[in-house]
Structure formats: structure tokens, C-alpha cells
Amino acid sequence: MINYFWDNIFKGDRKEKSVYTTLKNNILFKDLNPRELQLVQNIVNVRHFQKGEVIFQYGEVGVGMYLIVSGSVDISLNGKIITKLKEGDFFGELALAEENGRRTADTISAEECVMIGFFRPDMFEIANRNPSAGVKILFRLSQVLGTRLLETTTLISTMRRDARLNDQKNS
């Protein structure tokens, strides 16, 4: 009874606020005005994951991305953890732009997680109901994908240069 009395009966409201805050602080949605953010909040899917639960697996067809509201996620490849993502981070955004794109890593929740699933059908619905918000999100998405591409290209160039230098040293 005492526990019940002291328990926060406005938890639902707090959860909504944290979803709203997570969206607001994410790069994809940072250009949206409060009304547009409210629309996005009504459309996206809030999902709960248990500790150790698979979010998606390498090779699966992906439909969209996830934003971490609370908890953390391990990203792994061939059984090795390559990175750990925390509150506010997002992953799987390539699937938003790619039709029938495959997931390129395994993702497992490292602890109990609340995540926002933002998928291609949600993006189409936003673009259909509020094209201005849709354009803002797509512009930011292309920026994120462009940055990823640039990072990957730089990494490959560095690896190639290192390989060439090694070849020269050996010869």
C-alpha cells in the first residue's frame, strides 16, 4: 500500500516525455517543430526488449532503424562485440533507405531496453501526412548516410595506403 502510494502514478506521462525527448535530441528529427515531432511520436513504435533479446540478426531483411530510449545494445559480427550503444544512440538506419536491405550485423540488448522503432512504413506515413516533416527527416537521413559513406571510404583508403606501404617495405 505504502509502495503504491509512493509509486509514480504519472509513469506513462514520463515515458511519453522520454520518447519525445529522445526524438527531439536525435539528429534525424532535430529540425522538426513541436507539432511535427508530436506527429512523429504518434507514428513511431515503442518496443521493449528483455536483456539478451535479439533485436535483429545479420542477413535479415531490415525495415528500419531503432533509437535507444533507455538501456544499452551490443552490436556484434561473427560472435564478436564490435561496439556498445547507449541511450540516445541509433542503429539500422541504412534499412530506411534500402528496399529489402539486409542487416549487416547482429544486435542484442545488453540490458532491459526501451527502443523507438522507426520504420519505412512510418517514414512514408509521415511524408504523406506532413511532407515538410518528411523532407526534413529525409535530408537528415541522407546526411547521416553520407557521413557513414565518407567514414567508410576514408577507412578503406587508409587500409589500402597501409597495404601499399607494407608491400613497398617488403619489396
Binding site: N45, R47, F49, E53, V54, I55, F56, V61, G62, V63, G64, G117, F119, R120, P121, F124
Partner: peptide, 13 residues
């Protein structure tokens, strides 16, 4: 359930 959610959402769309 989470393991079928993306599939169900896409199928519905």
C-alpha cells in the same frame, strides 16, 4: 512479439 514486429509492420503496409 519483437521477432516478428518488422515483418508484421511491413506486411501491413
Amino acid at each position: 512479439p519483437n521477432s516478428f514486429f518488422e515483418l508484421a509492420l511491413n506486411l501491413n503496409y
